[in-house]
């Protein structure tokens, strides 16, 4: 499904600020895998997702998605197959445009954008039902500009947008980090529901180790640009937070690692 072979990234190559952030990462995801990713601040989690989405060019390595080599494709082209949510709720939506218009733009991900109407009549009804399913009362405000919504509401809309056109891969980078605990839980359960219903392949970065254990079928731990732990299935679900902390100590070779490093 998704395959990374020896993917490396160094920022500011050849300057005093040179920083190797990903070290020859190898990773293979199967169809329907839902991977949670944990690791301390600066471990390279966001960079890994950004390499896959094409936000920055990578130094070397090969990324294959659904049998296609996307290593050198520009971001907008990869986006045809990849749905994405950002940590910052402001990034995933266009604030000056209506909820309807945002959804309609997302509906056309990977499709030709021509001279027919940006939002068709039949779509409006479809989106009404869809937004209603969020249970946020937004279905009666479909012509409101997205800029007037709260961060949590925006993130929920972005989640719909990323999955409106079924993506081959869904990338979630701490997409609930900016939300209050209640809203965060709501968006997270919505994420699980959508991923399960559509049987999506997904990667989710989180600093909440309990969520990382409970959600998805596979867990990856990163440290200093390496994948230091990769566990799936039964073994993953039987993990405890303390196991993860221990694993982190072992692999990193540091004796006194406190959970703040992981919890961020």
């Amino acid at each position: 499904m998704l395959k990374l072979e020896k993917v490396s990234k160094t920022f500011n190559l050849g300057t005093v600020n040179e920083k190797k952030v990903l070290h020859e990462i190898n990773l293979e995801l199967e169809e329907g895998d839902f991977v949670t990713i944990i690791g301390g601040n600066g471990a390279g989690k966001s960079t890994l997702l950004n390499m896959i989405s094409g936000l920055y060019p990578m130094d070397c390595g090969v990324i294959t998605l659904d049998g296609e080599d996307i290593s050198l494709q520009p971001e907008y082209q990869r986006a045809k197959k990849i749905g994405r949510l950002f940590q910052d709720p402001m990034l995933g939506t266009a604030s000056e445009m209506q909820i309807l218009e945002n959804l309609a733009l997302a509906k056309r991900r990977g499709k030709h954008r021509g001279l027919s109407w940006g939002v068709s009549k039949s779509e409006k009804e479809e989106y009404y039902e869809l937004v209603k399913s969020l249970n946020l009362g937004l279905e009666n405000r479909l012509t409101t500009k997205v800029g007037l919504l709260s961060g949590g509401q925006r993130q929920a809309v972005t989640l719909l947008m990323a999955t409106l056109q079924k993506p081959k891969l869904l990338l979630l980078d701490e997409h609930t980090a900016a939300l209050d605990p209640a809203t965060s839980a709501k968006v997270l359960s919505l994420t699980e529901k959508i991923v399960n219903e559509q049987n999506l392949t997904a990667m989710m970065v989180t600093h909440n180790m309990k969520d990382a254990i409970d959600i998805g079928n596979r867990l990856i731990m990163m440290y200093d640009g390496h994948i230091i732990y990769d566990v799936r299935g039964e073994e993953k679900h039987n993990l405890k937070v303390s196991d993860l902390l221990k694993k982190f100590e072992e692999a990193s070779g540091e004796e006194f690692v406190n959970d703040r490093m992981l919890l961020g």
Partner: peptide, 23 residues
Amino acid sequence: GTELGSSLRATGNSEQMARSLGI
């Protein structure tokens, strides 16, 4: 109001969002 025109507005409003939607 067309698909193309909306994409253009989206680009001006939120470039990162536009690119992540394949524009």
